[in-house]
Design a protein around this nucleic acid. Structure first.
Lengths: 179, 179
DNA sequence: CTGCAAAAGCAAGCGGGTTTGCTTTAGGAT
DNA sequence: ATCCTAAAGCAAACCCGCTTGCTTTTGCAG
């Protein structure tokens, strides 16, 4: 039987925290024994649960990124997208968010399946666009939203270009052709 | 004195080839002894020249990516951008290009300096845009070109979404508002 | 409260990645 | 053609990340 509560959860959170902390202070290549030490956990527990460093990083990144920037339901597509995009912008202006995005991309192999984390996010977007269509508002495709908003924000971080405040608003306006 | 010619160059190319080959066949985490073996080179030589795996990957990725998709000078901004974007698209549809972009991003730390490889590419773009302005054509900013064209193409690869043929043309038209 | 088993801790051993001092090879200059 | 030295090769030792069999702890169910 699986046992999600109590000590298991504590260990998982402690290890995730340790991973993020080490990444943020520049210990990009910290090995499992080091992560375990910082988490106050036995290295064996980490090996048994995650298997290797890559799986651990991926799990930590997906888990922590999932908690940020939900899509609101304001009754206006513009405001829905703006609320979400501003959440993404905030995350991308924060060293934690930056390092998590970087870790996510770095641990992604070229496997064929599309990314689970992005798929769920795509479904949320689709729901917001469907709401707009149901209201009679003109709505772009999910692909356009990713091209116009997410790609520029993410690429700035990945290629170390600054994310200026107001970038999200500019990108949303550009997508919805409100110059 | 530095000695760029002859054997040094041969070793560098052999090691770069070995890195790319191993990455392409899925040996993402191949260690230096394995890379050296495939290159027919002594591991010590690799350690002495590059120091560690990360530096080696970064050097290989930057070197090989520099050789792809130059910006042509056709006398028309649309065609200049299209020629370049199609080169990028071609590269992103090729497993070698995909794996190199992935390696580049993965080995990039969050250091403050912007990326050298992208800076040079930005200057080439600026030159093409300046030519257009000199001809009296309206021209977007470099940032817009990156947002509209490079970011969507790169993000498709990094998040494992397919790069459909014709994507480059669509993105260029969208940027230059030729629906 | 008691018992069961999942998950964490412990310790020892293995294997391979990395380092280091030295030797050998081969560009490039005179 | 010859010399000089940067760069590659070699071998041995070291370090440390990882594995494994076992013991201990502790959720959670009855």
């Amino acid at each position: 039987m699986t046992r999600p509560g109590g000590r298991s959860a504590r260990v998982r959170d402690a290890v995730h925290d340790a991973v993020v902390d080490l990444l943020v202070i520049g210990e990009i290549n910290a090995a499992i024994p080091k992560i375990a030490e910082k988490a106050g956990v036995n290295p064996t527990s980490v090996y048994r649960r995650w298997g290797n460093r890559e799986q651990l990083l991926l799990d930590a990144a997906v888990t922590r990124l999932r908690e940020t920037s939900p899509i609101p339901d304001t009754g206006s597509l513009h405001d829905d997208l703006l609320g979400w995009a501003e959440g993404v912008e905030r995350s991308m202006r924060d060293p934690r968010g930056q390092i998590l995005l970087r870790a996510l991309v770095a641990t992604l192999g070229p496997e064929k399946e599309p990314l689970e984390h992005l798929r769920a996010r795509g479904e949320d977007l689709q729901a917001a666009l469907d709401r707009a269509t149901a209201r009679g508002e003109p709505a772009p495709s999910v692909e356009d939203v990713l091209d116009f908003i997410l790609a520029p924000l993410y690429l700035r971080v990945l290629f170390r270009r600054p994310v200026e405040p107001g970038t999200a608003a500019k990108l949303v306006d550009r997508l919805l052709k409100v110059p």
